[in-house]
Structure formats: structure tokens, C-alpha cells
């Protein structure tokens, strides 16, 4: 982690009613750095994102610390948080088809943010909104600004959502599965655009996805989440090439084409993600892990071997010269 800290998350716990869905997550994204957060559905990725934004649904609470510009966002009132959201920390959502108000011209939806935080006049905000639509490379930004969401394609809508998020030059951009709902051809463009803009703005990026190659293409660091805990953290290249946690290895094996299971199919991680509250005690992954034994009944700490910054929460981490724990058994 280099440079001034952008966003620091310390011991973030998110409870759904009384069940811990995010179990004390800590990480730090340096200013201008790009962090990937990866994991299967239900591992707590989206709740983490919503907790950072202070937008958790009713009945879901967050504790711990989320530090941005020296303030703990979790301590702020909703009114104070309104001044932060969209201004210092912004978010891009998964579903471009439903993320925009169907009854409002997209230009106005972008301008709204500017009028709110920058106190711009209607005319100035509208003009700036057109510039922003141009920055996200929408064709004919002038005309597009006057269109309604249903007149745009999914990819175009997601660009509008990105323009809204970047309108006030936020220090942190949280993108929750921003490309999942898009066509594969549009995905790459969208990622490239997001990468470019985040670099230009010097913003920190938290990119949440279940898609390892997506993270690999634009992030520097990678957090792997499973069962509400961070199970591995390190540089993207290192984690991707030689994962230490068996779960990361399994994830990688199920996305990389060379690691087929012998029958020509992609390998899968055995079992399924348990439902909230039914994860095993101790290591959350031990009921699906090929390396699990009695020691795994205690919670493993997120530690790195000497001379490395690749941390893994595993009692039996994979060493770089060993074969991967799962998936390659029959290869």
C-alpha cells in the first residue's frame, strides 16, 4: 500500500438482524489505488459496499470504522452522510437497467448531483452534465442528455450511472459488479473507461465482482472474501498466479481454462456457499476445503509469510511450489 491513505476500513462488522454477515473486515485503499474485492454471491461483498456508503437496508447494521479524510463515516448522522455520499464517496451499481429513474431525463439525473453538492445553477449543472456524458464517451452527449433511460442501451445506461458517480470528483469510487449485467463486448470497454477515469481523477477504486479476470485487468490489489471474512489479500498478479488460500485456488481453477478437470469441463468448488448464519465455526471454508483438518476448527488469522505481503487466512496455505489444493486432482 503506497501513498496517502484514501479509504481505511477497520474491523467492519455488518449484522443482518443478529447474524454477522461481514465478520470484522479490515483493508486500506491508498489514494489513487485500485482494489478488487472478489467472492461468490452471498459472501458479503455487496453488504460491505453498502456499509461504506451508509446505505444498508432496514434491519442491517454496521460497526467498526470506515475512515475517509480522517472521519469515521459510520459515526456520521444520515444528514452528514448525505453531504459525503456522491461527493467524497460514490457508487456504481450492478443493474444499469433499473438504476436510473425512468421518468427523468438522464442529463437531469447527472445534473442533480452537481446542484446538490456544488450548488450549481440549473443551467451550469446541465452544461456540466453534458460534459460528463461526453467524458464517459456517450455519443452525441447533447442529445443523449435529453433522453430518457429507456431510450439508451444497457451499456449506455451504465455510462450514465458512472457519470453520476464521477460528477463531483469523489475520492473513492465503489463499483459493485459494474459489468456483470452487460454484454461481454461492452464489459471490456466499460472496464477500460472506468480505469481511465479513475486514474485521471486520482480516485481510489473498490471494484467488487465475482469475476477474477475482471479484477486482474484493472486492479493492483485483490481482496478475496468468503463467508463474510477476508481470506486472502495481496497484489493481483501474485494472488492470481500463486494463490495461498485453497478457496482462491478453487476460484481461479473455476475461471482459468487450462485447469479443466480432465473431462474438458471447468473445474468447480465442491459444495455450495452456505446460507447466512450456517457457515462452520473456525475457518469458514473448512466444510468445502480439501485441506481441512482438526486445526481448522479454530479461526485462522490473516497472515503473510516472511518477506511477502500476500496474506492468507489459512492453517494450511498452499506454498508456491505445491500443486493447487483442489480442482487439479484429476488433471
Amino acid at each position: 500500500m503506497s501513498g496517502v491513505s484514501g479509504l481505511v476500513v477497520e474491523d467492519l462488522v455488518v449484522k443482518v438482524h443478529d447474524i454477522q454477515a461481514v465478520k470484522g473486515v479490515s483493508f486500506e485503499i491508498g489514494r489513487g489505488r485500485r482494489m478488487g474485492l472478489i467472492g461468490e454471491s452471498g459472501c458479503g461483498k455487496s453488504l460491505t459496499a453498502l456499509a461504506l456508503m451508509g446505505l444498508l437496508p432496514h434491519g442491517v447494521t454496521a460497526s467498526g470504522r470506515v475512515l475517509l479524510n480522517g472521519r469515521n463515516l459510520l459515526d456520521l448522522s444520515d444528514k452528514e452522510m448525505c453531504a459525503v455520499r456522491g461527493n467524497d464517496i460514490a457508487m456504481v451499481f450492478q443493474e444499469p437497467m433499473t438504476a436510473l429513474n425512468p421518468l427523468m431525463r438522464v442529463g437531469n439525473q447527472v445534473a442533480e448531483s452537481l446542484r446538490l453538492h456544488k450548488g450549481m445553477s440549473r443551467a451550469a449543472a446541465s452544461a456540466r452534465a453534458v460534459e460528463l456524458l461526453e467524458r464517459v464517451q456517450l455519443p452525441e452527449p447533447d442529445r443523449t442528455a435529453r433522453k430518457y433511460p429507456h431510450q439508451l442501451s444497457g451499456g449506455q445506461r451504465q455510462r450514465v450511472v458512472l457519470a453520476i458517480a464521477l460528477a463531483c470528483d469523489p475520492a473513492v469510487l465503489v463499483a459493485d459488479e459494474p459489468t456483470t449485467a452487460l454484454d461481454v463486448t461492452v464489459q471490456a470497454e466499460m472496464l477500460r473507461l472506468m480505469d481511465t477515469l479513475v486514474r485521471e481523477e486520482g480516485a481510489s477504486l473498490l471494484l467488487i465482482t465475482h469475476d477474477l479476470p475482471v479484477v486482474a485487468s484493472i486492479c493492483e490489489e485483490l481482496l478475496v472474501m468468503y463467508g463474510g471474512s477476508i481470506v486472502e489479500h495481496g497484489d493481483v498478479a501474485t494472488v492470481f498466479d500463486s494463490p495461498r488460500h485453497p478457496y482462491t485456488a478453487g476460484l481461479r481453477a473455476s475461471t482459468v481454462l487450462e485447469s479443466t478437470d480432465g473431462s474438458g469441463r471447468l473445474s468447480t468448488i465442491p459444495g455450495r456457499v452456505p446460507s447466512l448464519g450456517s457457515f462452520p465455526t473456525g475457518c469458514v471454508y473448512r466444510n468445502r476445503c480439501p485441506r481441512a483438518d482438526d486445526v481448522c476448527g479454530t479461526v485462522p488469522l490473516l497472515t503473510a509469510p516472511p518477506g511477502s505481503n500476500q496474506r492468507a487466512a489459512c492453517h494450511h496455505p498452499i506454498e508456491s511450489d505445491q500443486p493447487l489444493g483442489s480442482g487439479k486432482a484429476s488433471a
Partner: peptide, 21 residues
């Protein structure tokens, strides 16, 4: 709806999201 969440993420308060969106 999702677009209310987008509105809230922009920094609109609950009542602003209600009246404007």
C-alpha cells in the same frame, strides 16, 4: 427500487429521494 438507491448514493436524503424521484 434501484433508482432510489442511486438517488441516495448521489447524496439525496430520504425525503429528497421521495419527493424528487
Amino acid at each position: 427500487e434501484d433508482f432510489i438507491q442511486t438517488a441516495r448514493a448521489k447524496g439525496l436524503s430520504r425525503s429528497q429521494a421521495l419527493t424528487r424521484h
